[in-house]
Every structure is written in structure tokens, then in C-alpha cells.
Nucleic acid binder design. Structure first.
Lengths: 346, 346
DNA sequence: CCATTTTTCTAAATCGTTATAGATCAGCCT
DNA sequence: AGGCTGATCTATAACGATTTAGAAAAATGG
């Protein structure tokens, strides 16, 4: 159509004034080269001359060429998309949103887009993952809320589909992951409680289905053994229970057994609820009882300075997972990127 | 590569055992029809016979045909993607994550994917929007943190690119939006404070650049006039200031002017920080001072039962915006979907 | 019964990209 | 000079879908 599309007034040939999106064809016409040559030049193929490459690259950047994603995807199957699969169940003090933000940051200037694929409480957690793999709608997947033998991970491994997890599975030496060392956290927290003289610790742990619950409980047990303190892990509430449940449970517990002098919480929200519960029955935080928790947001200590908080840097997770996912895509046979963040005791 | 990979050795015909992703071609072969006929049948074109349509649809669902997104996108330009453009600035008590979740819910079973496009504090807010429009990487955009004359909205309107906003602009009668009626909230909150005898109210408002700050302040003014109370809007802190800043400012303020007996906060996090501040200087919430705030998460009242909370249903926003965006795509000339959520006074 | 319309389907082209195989030309060897 | 090699580039086809124009079959009309 547009043989000639320079400057002057033109018959209704698709000309430049339309500001059509530049394609390889545009560059080909401008440079007098063939389309495949332009493509190979931009991809730095070995069989293209140096001068040609430079010329093509110059033109490309001058006219602001950006490869058409649909074209690339159709031809190569590469989507340049990473999918974050997340539950819509909102853990109040939302980690998930920061994970999204930080994955997005990690993807900045990489050419990858981030698509968020939700799954819903009532449906199979495998469904979104299967959808992505079967329709090829992403090049890699990032998962959180990992179970020890997470079926999604099993599925992805079997298909050799690139992925990275926020949390560890039992096979985690085999795949990319980022995790917070909850066992270390629990050891530190338990030791701190013991250090200030607390003897009877109650733990509000994560749901047992999540792998990190095991780590955390193990850590508390270690600390309890070392310090010779009593340890009780509640099994009727978890750090994902509603605030009302946690509050009520803590209140009831302290009334039944006033000798309890320490509480440990696995989440910011359960910590706040637990504080509400203990205060509701007249206990005084930092006086006749202490509470420790993981602090994902600098909030707890502001709220109640007496809370003993151990910080968790959530933002690091997303950026790391983004890198790990890209690595898994680009170099599937390389050793997967793995990181365990150890909390600092201070 | 995998010429023969089913069970028996096979000549290099691409046969069904490969479990190749079914395409229109697959259906065409199975039905003995031509590819375009299959396409038109699935799209319910008027020039295809009833029997044919049924046959095609039956086969399609039997073999689990799903249209290839890249193919559709390349040919039609339709991406079937909606992009949520969000700041990575984490407002602690994260609205954004719930917005993402709820938009995702709203997009369920619509065939649309949700991609999250971040923009970074140091760069132009217009950049991601321009990128999306210029590269055509989405069919519609959802924006939040809206300014009165938001340049992104101006840009999108000018290009006639479908979008919906979480918040109102000055042109909002012309475009799809969802907003919480902050003016009504402020009226209600202000009236409540007056009703319990508070005379001197200090407001920690949203940043003035956000449009809803104006609405909220106007609402407080109305309430103050009606009740004849004193009103002061702080201009050195906002509801987006850090918790430490809010806490310190509130503490200082109450020391300088102990007569202040009421505080209103525009966000959950600033409310908690303000409570910390007032308690730090020995004031007693619910006794010699009161505090009211918007409660996006059922948290405040748990934390401090004395806080006067007005709830905001954040989840409704996302689902509405998803619908609104789709409508803007499908029927650009129709009246845009708009909703103003009025808080209930209870 | 042939011409004409309507219904239903097909062929070819296209979107932007890349893989494959082949073309062109220079330089070099014998 | 003829043949070969290597360096560059081009032509063609393909990915999966849809649009356009046109063909074939069926229905209608006189």
C-alpha cells in the first residue's frame, strides 16, 4: 500500500501522518533491507553484518520501534508474561499486595508483563495453573501460600514449566524459591520471651496446610527446649483466623489459664487481634504478659510499642522471585535461584 | 522434533495423540469444513447454517478448543486484557491489593486477563498509560488515585481509549468511575462527633492532589457549620504521611493545644498512628478525646473499640470497575457506568 | 426449465514476527 | 579460470485467527 509515505499531501494511502505503529516492515522500507534481515539484525544474529546491525538499530530507535507482542508470541510461543497466581482470600494485613508491587518492580525494564491470575476459595487451586500451562498464557508462574507437597508445584515440575515459589516445598532444593526463615524467627522470638522471664508461651501459628507453619513451630520448640519454657501451640485458631476469632480465643484462654504470660503470633493481624483479646480481659501488655510477632509492616510497634516485633522484609521477596522466574525461563537447566531470608535478631 | 510421540511408531503426520493444542484447523479437519467457516460458526456469524454451527460448537467443546490469544490479537488488535495501573507506593493498609483482587474477581469468566502495570514514584504517571495506549497492550485501563484534572484521564479521553477510574475527576460525568462518597462520609463523621459533644475537630485529610480530599474536606465543613463546631484541617500531614509523622504531629498538636477534643482521619493507618500519638501524650480515647475514621478493613474497631468507624466497602469497587471497563470496551458510545457509594450512617 | 436470488460455504490475504533454506558475491585456493 | 568457502542477505513459509470477496448449492420466480 504505502510505497511512498514521506511528507507531502498524499492520496489515501496509509501514510505517516496516521502515526501508524512502526513494524519491522517500516524499518525494512526505510533501510532498503528485507524484513527478516531487520529482524535478525535486531536480534543480533551472527549472520548479519556489523554496519547493517548498526544502521537497523539506529533507525529502530529513531522511529521508536517496539516489537509487536502478538506477533512474537504467535510465532515463537514466548508470551513475555509472568503470571502471579494468588488466592483472593484477603489476609487482612495484605502481604499479597506488596508481593504484587514488588514483583512488578522486579519486572521493570525486563520486557515482561505481570498478569495476576486469581483462584477462588471454592475451586481447585490447580485450575489457574493448569489453565496457564495448557493455554500457554505465560512463560513462568509465581506461586505463594505453598503447601509442603504442593500439587501445583508437582504439576509444574512434571511439565517442566518455569516457576518460582514464595515459600518452600519438600522438593524445594529442586526449584526456585524465596522464603523467610520462619524457624529462625521462632527461635529468636522464643528466646526473647525467655530472656525477659516469660515461662509459658502460647503460639498462634499459621494454618497447618502451609509449609511454613511447620518451620515456625519447630523453631518455637527449639527455643522452648533450650530455655526450658512451656510451649503450647493453639490448634483451634491460626494466624489466618478472623480477628474476632483470635480475640475471643485469646480472651477465653487467658481466663481459663491466667498463668500464661506470653503469646507469639505468626501474623501482624493476629497479633493485633490477640492484643485486643488480652486487653479485653484486663491483662497489661509488657507488664504481666508479653507478645511477639512477625512485623511485615512497621505497624505493630507503632500501635503497641511493647510488642516484641521481628521484621520481615516483604519487598525483597517479589524482586527476587521476579529474577528467579526470568532465570527459570531463560536458562531452565541452570541451578534455580533460591533464597532464605534470615531475620536479624535485634 | 516430536514427529511420533504417541504410542506406536507413526509417520510424520501430526496426529491427535500428540495432544497438540486444538486450533481452528483441528476443528476444520474433524468437521470437514474450512477454517474460516469454523471461525465464523464459533462467532455466530449470520451466514453460517444452524446445523453447521451446532456441529462446530459440539466438536469445539469436545476437544476443549480455546482460541489462541496471540492469533486473535494479531489479527484483530483486541488483546482481551485489562490493565490496572497502580502506584507502587504502598499505602500501608493496603487498599490496592483488595482492588486487585476484586477487579480480578470481576473479570472472572469474562475471558479478560488482568495485567498490573506499576508506575514508580520518580517517574511520570503518564508513562505507563502512554505505553499501554501506544503499544496497544490492553483494551482498557483502570486507574486509581485520581486527581481532579488527572492528566492520564485527559490523555485517555483524547485518544478515546476505554478506561474506568476509582475516584472522580472534574469530567467524571463523561467517563466510567466508581467512587466512595467521601463528602457524605465526612458529613456523617462530623455530625457524629458533634452529637457526642465534641467541639473542636482536627482533620487529617488525604493529600490535596487527590480529588477526594476536596470532597472530604467539604463534607467536614458542612458538618461543622451545621453543628457550629470548630474545624481545623492539618496541612503539614496527610493520611498518606508515615505513621511516625502522623503520630508525632498529633502528639505535638495536642500538647500545644489541649483543648482539641476530636480527630478525624482519612485512612485506617493514619487513624492508628493518630491514636498512638494521642495516647503518647496521655489522652484517653473515648474519654477526653474522640477519633473517627474510615474503616476499609474491619480492624480499627477491633483495635480500639472506641474509635468511631465508618465503613467503606472496597471490594465492591473492583467488581464494578471491571464491569465498567468491559462496557467501555464493548460499547464505547453507551453511557459510561458510574457509581457513587454512599456510606450508611450507623 | 432457465434465470435470478438467497443461503451457505470456501479461497486468499492479512496481522507482525521468526525459522529455514537458498541466493548472491567476494575472496581464496589450486 | 574454475571451484570452493565464508559472509551477508533475501524469499518463502509458517504461527492462529479473521476479513473480504467470490464460488457453489439451494431456493425462488416467471
Amino acid at each position: 500500500m504505502n510505497k511512498f509515505n514521506g511528507a507531502l499531501g498524499m492520496p489515501p494511502t496509509k501514510t505517516a501522518e496516521t502515526r501508524e505503529k512502526p513494524t519491522l516492515k517500516t524499518i525494512a522500507q526505510l533501510s532498503g533491507l528485507a524484513v527478516p534481515t531487520v529482524s535478525r539484525a535486531l536480534n543480533d544474529a551472527p549472520d548479519i553484518g556489523q554496519k547493517t546491525k548498526e544502521k537497523v538499530r539506529r533507525i529502530a530507535s529513531e522511529i521508536g520501534y517496539v516489537p509487536n507482542r502478538a506477533g512474537v508470541r504467535l510465532r515463537t510461543g514466548r508470551t513475555n508474561v509472568i503470571s502471579l497466581v494468588m488466592s483472593t482470600h484477603h489476609d487482612v494485613m495484605n502481604h499479597t499486595s506488596r508481593l504484587i508491587s514488588s514483583v512488578a518492580s522486579g519486572l521493570r525494564d525486563t520486557g515482561f508483563h505481570l498478569i495476576v491470575t486469581p483462584f477462588f476459595p471454592e475451586e481447585d487451586a490447580l485450575k489457574p495453573v493448569r489453565y496457564i500451562v495448557e493455554t500457554g498464557s505465560a512463560d513462568a508462574v509465581i506461586l505463594n501460600q505453598i503447601e509442603p507437597e504442593d500439587p501445583r508445584v508437582a504439576y509444574l515440575r512434571e511439565r517442566r514449566f518455569p516457576f518460582a515459589t514464595h515459600g518452600r516445598t519438600v522438593w524445594c532444593d529442586q526449584h526456585a524459591y524465596y522464603d523467610y526463615d520462619n524457624q529462625a524467627f521462632a527461635r529468636i522470638a522464643g528466646a526473647k520471651m525467655a530472656a525477659i522471664g516469660r515461662k509459658r508461651l502460647v503460639v498462634i501459628a499459621p494454618p497447618r496446610s502451609h509449609n511454613y507453619a511447620k518451620h515456625m513451630i519447630a523453631g518455637f520448640r527449639e527455643a522452648a527446649e533450650v530455655a526450658g519454657t512451656e510451649l503450647r501451640v493453639l490448634d483451634n485458631v491460626t494466624s489466618d483466623s478472623t480477628s474476632a476469632e483470635v480475640k475471643a480465643t485469646v480472651a477465653r484462654l487467658l481466663q481459663d489459664d491466667p498463668g500464661i504470660d506470653a503469646i507469639a503470633c505468626a501474623s501482624t493481624s493476629s497479633a493485633m487481634a490477640a492484643v485486643a483479646g488480652l486487653e479485653a480481659v484486663g491483662r497489661k501488655l509488657g507488664v504481666d504478659i508479653d507478645l511477639c510477632a512477625k512485623e511485615a509492616i512497621p505497624f505493630l510497634t507503632l500501635f503497641r510499642p511493647d510488642i516484641i516485633a521481628v521484621s520481615e522484609k516483604v519487598d525483597a521477596a517479589g524482586e527476587f522471585l521476579a529474577r528467579a522466574a526470568i532465570q527459570a525461563i531463560r536458562d531452565p537447566s541452570a541451578a534455580p535461584l533460591q533464597q532464605l531470608e534470615v531475620p536479624t535478631d535485634t
